[in-house]
């Protein structure tokens, strides 16, 4: 059978050319789209959203203000073994146990509890000043956690003291 007898066969080249003009070449587009997808998958940095603890920085206070309120000192020190030692006012210093498993409560809860009992003993209110005194070697992690534990008691007048 000759090809010319077939209905689907069109020997006219110009007609075939016209039909092809309407074709969209998908292959390069799919290539680009896949490249974009791979790029986004590889460069995406999945991480938790950061939170923030509001804090006030120390300002110059007048002598009269200093005499009016005697701040309660909270000294925080990090030991070389990684533990954290805290002393509230003149009370005995205590070590904060590090968290051993996920189900345990925050290890700095003990600081909140002890601070609350000291505040109650001394008859201090929520607006009374607290001086957070870290040493030069105290880890920033321990400073922030101690601040968080104090903030938990709704104490808002917390000042950072500069280390020597």
């Amino acid at each position: 059978m000759s090809l010319h007898t077939l209905k689907s066969y069109h020997p006219n080249r110009t007609h075939r050319k016209e039909r092809r003009r309407f074709e969209i070449k998908m292959t390069p587009m799919i290539d680009v789209v896949f490249l974009l997808l791979i790029f986004f998958l590889l460069t995406a940095n999945f991480r938790s959203k950061e939170g923030f603890l509001p804090a006030e920085l120390p300002q110059q206070v007048t002598r009269a203000e200093q005499l009016e309120f005697v701040p309660l000192d909270v000294q925080v020190d990090s030991k070389p073994d990684g533990s954290c030692h805290v002393q509230i006012g003149q009370t005995e210093a205590f070590a904060i146990q590090l968290k051993t498993d996920e189900t345990q409560r925050s290890e700095f809860d003990i600081l909140s509890q002890r601070l609350k009992s000291v505040l109650d003993e001394q008859g201090r209110g929520l607006m009374d000043p607290i001086k957070l005194i870290p040493t030069a070697r105290t880890k920033w992690d321990h400073v922030v956690k101690a601040y968080d534990a104090i903030w938990q008691l709704d104490l808002k007048n917390i000042t950072f003291v500069l280390a020597e």
Partner: peptide, 11 residues
Amino acid sequence: QKVQLAAFKND
């Protein structure tokens, strides 16, 4: 005077 300290809420 006021600053926000960055910290994660969870472990």
